[in-house]
Amino acid sequence: MAVADFVKSAGESFRVGWKIESNWTDPVLFATYQVIRPLASLLIVAFIVIIGASVGASANSAFYSQYLAWLIVGNAFYAFVLQIMLGMAILVHVDRTRYEVLKNIYISPGTLHPYVIGRGLVSVVNGAVSVILTLLFSVAIFNGLLHMNIPLNLLGVNLLMLFPGVILGIISLLAIGYMLCAVNIVSNRMEFILGDSVSGIFFLLGGVIFPIALLPSYVQPISNVLPITFLLNTVRESFGLLPTGDYMTDLAYLALTTLVTLIVGIAVFRLAEQRAKKLGLFDRKSEY
C-alpha cells in the first residue's frame, strides 16, 4: 500500500473516530469529560501528599512542594496512557459488536492498519487535551487558589527535551494499543478488562505517582522495561523536576523499548489477524 493511501485512510479513520468520540454529544459535556476526570484523579493523589505534609511538616516545605510538582506532571501525562489504552482496548469491540463495521473495514483493501492507527490518534489528541488542561488547572488550583508555590513553571519547559520523549512515548503506547486490539480480535468480552489491566499496571509500576525505587525490589525490573517509565522520566527532566536524571540515557531506553513494543505490536497484530481469518472472528459479536 502506498504511503499516501495509508495516510489518507488513517486520516479518514481519524475523522470518523473524532466524530464518534467528540461530536455526538454535547461539547460542554465532552470538555467536562476531558477535564474533570483526569483532574479528579490528580486531586486524589495531590491531597494524599498534602495530607502527608500536614501530618509531617509544613504544607509548603520544599520536599512536599517538589514532590507535588513531580506527581502532577506524572499524573497529567498518564492521561496519554489512559486515553490510548482504554480507547484502543474497546475499539474492536465497538466496531465489531456495536457498529458491525469491522468486517467491512477488513474486506476493503489495506484499510485495517491505517484504520486502527487513525482511531488511536484520536485517543492521542484526547490525551493531549487532557494533559494540557490538567497542567493548567493544577497550576491554577495549587499555586493560584491554594498559594502552595509548587515549582511548576509551564513556560519554562524545555520543549526540545519534551517533544522527542513524548513522541516516542506515544508511538510505544500506540504499539501497545495495537496489541490490545489484536487480543480483542481473537478474544471475547475482554475489552474492558484489558484496557484497565494495562493502564493499572502502568499506574502501579510506571513511576506515575511515586518513584519506582519505592517498589519492592523484585518488581523493579519490570518497571525498567516499561516505556512509560522512561516517557515520564524524560517528561519530568524537560520540566526540570528530575535533577539527578540523565535525559539522554532515558531517551535512549525509551527509543529502545519503543522499538521493541513496535515490533512486538505489529507481530502480535498480524498473528491475531491470521487467526481471526482462520476462525472467522471478524464478525463475531460479544453478547453479554
Partner: peptide, 20 residues
Amino acid sequence: IGLPILTIGAYVILYRAIGL
C-alpha cells in the same frame, strides 16, 4: 478483584512514601 489491587497498591505505596 485483581484490578482494584493495582490502584490500591499504588496508593498504599504512596502513603508509605510520605510517612503516614
